[in-house]
Computed example of a mutant assay.
Amino acid sequence: MDKTNKLPGFSILLMILLAATCFVIPAWALERDDIVIDGGEGQHHLSVEIARTPQERSFGLMERDHLPDNAGMLFVYPREQPPGTGFWMYRTRISLDIAFLAKDGEIRAIHTMPPCESERPSECPSYRAGVPFHVALEVNRGYFDARDIEVGDRLILP
């Protein structure tokens, strides 16, 4: 009796699970760092998850029900992104603010993005940067206003 292929269903299930992990990036798998924003009423510290790969950037904060007060996600790009580049809120459940930053950390634009409640991606708006940027920072809605952080302030990048 050949015992090498005793569980063919298990092999298929394992392949499906491995393929699925290529599309879903758990929060614990992302690199984390502490950053500082210099502006408003002094310096503000944030603990951020860093999305560097295309897969990490495309998944972003999807499927999250909560983001701690002093936390965020930093989207890092290898090259400057054009002003027409946008972010969308498909499958994102929390309201966010996003800052678009130059390579040196200067905040060039800030936008507010409410969650998209549609199950259809085509019905979720895109929030374009409106400025060229190298880095984007998503935080809870109201974070920047509550700390008087505005365009021209600077993120001290790790």
Score class of each variant (00 low, 15 high):
Gly39Thr: 03
Met113Phe: 13
Lys103Phe: 13
Pro54Tyr: 04
Ser47Leu: 13
Arg57Lys: 13
Asp148Tyr: 11
Asp97Asn: 07
Gln43Glu: 15
Arg91Gly: 00
Thr112Phe: 13
His44Glu: 08
Ala129Glu: 11
Leu101Arg: 07
Pro83Tyr: 14
Val139Asn: 08
Met113Ala: 06
Thr92Asn: 07
Gln55Arg: 09
Thr53Arg: 04
Gly142Tyr: 13
Ser122Trp: 15
Glu138Phe: 08
Tyr127Ile: 02
Met113Trp: 11
Ala71Arg: 10
Ala102Glu: 15
Phe133Asp: 03
Pro132Arg: 07
Gly142Ile: 08
Ala102Lys: 13
Ser122Thr: 13
His111Val: 04
Ser58Pro: 02
Trp88Leu: 07
Val76Ser: 07
Ala71Glu: 11
Ser47Cys: 08
Gly105Lys: 02
Glu117Ala: 04
Cys116Arg: 05
Ser47Tyr: 12
Ser58Arg: 14
Lys103His: 14
Ala109Arg: 14
Phe75Tyr: 13
Glu63Phe: 15
Val76Ala: 03
Asp104Asn: 12
Glu138Cys: 01
Leu67Thr: 02
Asp104Gly: 01
Thr85Asn: 14
Thr112Ala: 14
Asp65His: 11
Glu119Leu: 05
Asp69Leu: 00
Ser126Tyr: 04
Ile37Gly: 01
Ser47Glu: 15
Asn140Phe: 02
Glu119Arg: 05
Asp148His: 13
Gly42Val: 07
His45Ile: 04
Ala129Trp: 11
Ala71Pro: 01
Arg79Gln: 15
Ile98Val: 10
Arg64Phe: 12
Leu74Glu: 08
Met89Glu: 02
Phe87Trp: 11
Gly86Asp: 12
Thr85Cys: 06
Ser58His: 09
Met62Cys: 01
Thr53Asp: 07
His45Gln: 11
Asn140Cys: 02
Arg79Gly: 03
Tyr127Thr: 03
Asn70Thr: 05
Lys103Ala: 14
Phe75Lys: 06
Pro78Tyr: 08
Phe75Arg: 05
Ala146Glu: 15
Gly40Asn: 08
Phe59Pro: 00
Gly105Ala: 06
Met89Asn: 00
Phe59Met: 06
Gly60Trp: 12
Ala109Cys: 04
Gly42Thr: 06
Val131Ala: 08
Phe59Trp: 09
Leu61Val: 04
Ile94Gly: 00
Thr85Met: 14
Asp104Met: 06
Gly39Asn: 05
Arg79Trp: 15
Pro68Trp: 00
Ala102Met: 10
Met62Thr: 05
Lys103Gly: 11
Leu46Glu: 12
Pro83Glu: 12
Arg91Ser: 03
Ser122Pro: 04
Arg93Lys: 11
